[in-house]
Design a binder for these strands. Sequence first.
DNA 1: CATCACCTGAAATTGAATATCAATAGCACC
DNA 2: GGTGCTATTGATATTCAATTTCAGGTGATG
Lengths: 163, 163
Amino acid sequence: MRLTRQCESAKVKSNIKMDGPVNTDAQDAFHAYMVARGLKSTRQREIILDEFLKAGAHLSTEELYLRLREQHPHIGYATVHRTLKLFAECGIAEPRHFGDGQTRYESSAGAQHHDHLLCTVCGAIVEFENPQIEALQELVARQHGFRIERHRLELYGRCRKCQ
Amino acid sequence: MRLTRQCESAKVKSNIKMDGPVNTDAQDAFHAYMVARGLKSTRQREIILDEFLKAGAHLSTEELYLRLREQHPHIGYATVHRTLKLFAECGIAEPRHFGDGQTRYESSAGAQHHDHLLCTVCGAIVEFENPQIEALQELVARQHGFRIERHRLELYGRCRKCQ
DNA sequence: CATCACCTGAAATTGAATATCAATAGCACC
DNA sequence: GGTGCTATTGATATTCAATTTCAGGTGATG
């Protein structure tokens, strides 16, 4: 009975409490997707979305699960897993497969396409974008008769701190 | 008792039977590595190396295992797996992780570094090399304070036939 | 040709992703 | 607010590839 009102106020609050570019966009997109598909808005999904947006990094299911557990020990791993897949389906998260065998999800809020620099020592991930490289990729593909649908470019090395 | 002689003659024969640029290089590198590490040259390893070089493609452990089984049903999956890792350690094979969740090994014999074009329809894999892209990668990395150790560039799309 | 450390192969284990299913909880309607 | 339908949850089981284990087998060396 309280929940409907809580949801609304939560949305408003998040506009206030978060600094920088806020992601009510993501929340709206998520809710729109849910409504369109006849899915339900649940407490867990709200919490997971909140935590995911707050983290703002490249999180694996497990990392997000562990973070959530601190405040919400009742949320199960399977729910985190399914919810992240939901995020991917509705376009507010991008699944990424780096070398470590775990799927990581990255918030696609606001961000354009980009590639990644990964530190092999401390695990830091830096995003970058380079139109020249993209153009050359197109060129190479055309030379081989390919039409590119997507690509993956990852540069592995040591970051400034770890050299 | 017969085996020692067989090994020797096998090496000679493979020089004769294979057309094109032969990979006794790879075989030599492998043997050198084995000797240096006190590892042993076994029939299975010879057979697996032979088959691997003969295939000359991007093979997963399972694919290679299945191929081997036709002629050598006695060779176990675990042995193929371990031997491919050995190849990787001694530098005659490169492990690759494309999107499909399986590790593929590629012969590094003769080939310089290169990247891949992958057809999302028929699974064809084309190798390419582009120094301009490599140079730009270096540049981008430097701009972010990174020193690149390795990279991964994969272009996914439709090949000429599959458009 | 004996010895020993390495190797093999079947089976067990791991780790991440995903499926299962009974219990729970939204949501729409009364 | 109550009711029923249906999606969701969370503990657990399953899957699938990679990897480890271990008893028995087999190279290399003296």
